[in-house]
Simulated scan of single mutants.
Amino acid sequence: MRNKWKIAFFILLGVVLAAVVTLLILAMIPPDGKKQEQTKVKDGDMVSFLIRTNREDVNKLINHYLEKEVADSPVNYQVRVGDEVELYGTVPFFSQELNMKLTFVPEALDNGDLLLKQKSISVGQLRLPVPYVLDFIRKSYKLPKGVEIWPNERQVVVHMQQLKLKSDVKLKANSFDLEKDDISFTLLVPVK
């Protein structure tokens, strides 16, 4: 009789151990049956986010950025985005300050930069050559890092990824269609 109880005990112990092992195996198998790979992040990787916006928000952003970046500039200027990009400022002319307005047509380039093609210019009532005025602006105004003026081509290039933003965040222009109020950027956030 003793052997029957020993045999029953070991059978019961085997069933309990088999149940525990089965439960552990089932707990370790992923829910969908596939092993989940952990996303590996390398230092220097960038995560991208698509941002769609409108002219009003772009105006707020640009002028806030200019206030911070060129606050210590002796020359005051402002950018307004409407049906086109407009730059307002002053030009010293002898002992007078002349009001200036330049208008540009924006174009998002394939590399994420923003090209501003000069459309019109007015400096008071004077007719001045466009390359001269653009060269004067390039030499006299404190421009944010990443903004390059090409006077002879009548263009301004905004190298979006060179703009100084917080936390090393970078921007790329995707579309800049002012007529349709379709403005989109890719925000590149570094993963460290």
Rank of each mutant, 00 (worst) to 15 (best):
V123Y: 01
V58G: 00
L128R: 11
L188T: 02
N3I: 15
D113G: 01
E107G: 07
K42D: 10
V191Q: 08
P144I: 04
D177K: 09
K6N: 13
W150C: 11
P31E: 12
R138M: 10
S184H: 05
I149G: 07
V16L: 08
V189H: 00
Q36R: 12
S48Y: 04
I51V: 15
V147E: 09
V70T: 12
D177A: 10
N59L: 03
E107L: 11
R52W: 06
P151C: 08
P74A: 01
D168P: 06
V123N: 02
K166T: 12
R138E: 10
F93H: 12
K139Y: 14
R80W: 07
K117P: 03
A71D: 15
L24G: 07
W150I: 11
F10K: 00
V79G: 04
V130L: 12
I25H: 08
F176I: 08
D32V: 01
V133D: 06
N99I: 08
S184L: 05
L109Q: 14
E107W: 02
V58I: 08
R127D: 15
V20F: 11
P129K: 06
I137P: 02
M160E: 08
F104H: 03
I62N: 06
V130Y: 01
V105S: 11
L128K: 10
K40N: 12
Y77S: 09
V20C: 04
K117I: 13
L98I: 07
P151R: 04
S120L: 01
K142W: 07
E67R: 13
E69Y: 01
D110T: 09
K40P: 00
D32S: 07
V16S: 03
L134E: 10
H159E: 10
Y77M: 06
E148G: 06
R2D: 13
V81T: 07
E148T: 11
L116E: 02
I7R: 15
P129Q: 11
D135P: 01
D113W: 03
I25M: 10
L187C: 03
Q38N: 12
S122I: 03
E56T: 14
Q118R: 10
P31A: 12
M160K: 05
V58S: 02
K172L: 13
D83G: 15
F49A: 13
F10T: 00
V158D: 04
E86F: 03
L187M: 13
V81W: 09
M1D: 11
L12P: 00
P190A: 06
A19C: 10
P131H: 03
K142D: 05
S95F: 10
N111W: 00
Q161K: 13
V85W: 08
L115M: 14
R138P: 00
L50Y: 08
T90H: 12
V157Y: 10
L187D: 00
V20S: 05
Q161C: 01
V130C: 08
D43A: 15
L126T: 03
L143I: 03
E97V: 08
W150N: 15
S95N: 13
K164S: 14
